[in-house]
Design a protein around this nucleic acid. Sequence first.
DNA 1: CGTGGTCAAGCGGTA
DNA 2: TACCGCTTGACCACG
Length: 315
Amino acid sequence: MRVRLGYVAISKTIEDISYCHNLTFTNYKKLNVDSQNEKLNNIIKKNLVNLKEILKYNGINNIHFFRLSHSMIPLATHEKVIFDYIRPFKKEWLDIENIIKKFKMRIDIHPDQFCVLNSDKKDVVNNSMKILKFNNEIFNILNINGKIIIHVGSSIPNKIEAIERFKKNFLKLDRQIQKQIIIENDDKIYNVIDVLNLCEELKTPMVLDYHHYICNNNKENIDDYFERIFSTWDKEKLPPKIHFSSPKNRKNRRAHSEFIDYKAFINFINRIKKYNKNIDIMLECKGKDEALFKLVRQLKYYTNFKFIDDTTFEV
DNA sequence: CGTGGTCAAGCGGTA
DNA sequence: TACCGCTTGACCACG
């Protein structure tokens, strides 16, 4: 089994290179009409240039996959702000595409909490579809095989009806977007079994979030479900994706800790290695890439995992 | 220089 | 009932 490790969205090592500079609608409105677009364009340009630098940093450090934060194009799906974030930035987008291709990177995107495909409110569903379309467009601009990670969403008035709404709305999406969506179990409502059943029915890959499983389960044993979860990826070119993180502390179990509990991680690897799949594990820690490299040092010291590069090992 | 309030938007959970 | 956290930070006004 080959395991690749990655981290989320922001590097802590290279500071001052954020690609998440934002412009809120309130502040946008305060500007006069001429400077609105100028301000927006400046922010987008800065974000795209910085994203390129972060991807380059990742590539040089053998980090093979990355999750894009989605605020890199502020107001992209705001109905009252119409602007072109593609053509004026052709060079910047192309630079990013070239870096991704050069290092053969896997790129995911995770819409924020306002993307609720199964909401009982029509406007929320429409906006969610718009967000998904925007994410799809980013992949189209970059000409890459990216995935959009979403949760099932709301449970109003109950999980059964809400799952039916999810299926109905999912099937309304463009086929291309349907194929990009992968669904993750969450820490409050939709547990591993809910999401696995849904993914099998929709023929959509499932992202297992191990920390969410710890927070939200019916005392089922996760070991009984690994095989089925991995199988949802059988038709994909990309390896199955797992999110791994450690709880902050006993009291605050849902929050993410700064670093990974390496013993829990080693235990986890030893339980999944028999499936002999290649796996991409994204570490979700406050410590970001520092947490990734700390875990790698611990694995090198405490295990016989055979490291192929800075973030990839075989067991 | 540090801090706290604010930001377009949805949810469920907690005090 | 009102706020908090999420996947999360940036920015600005203020001291």
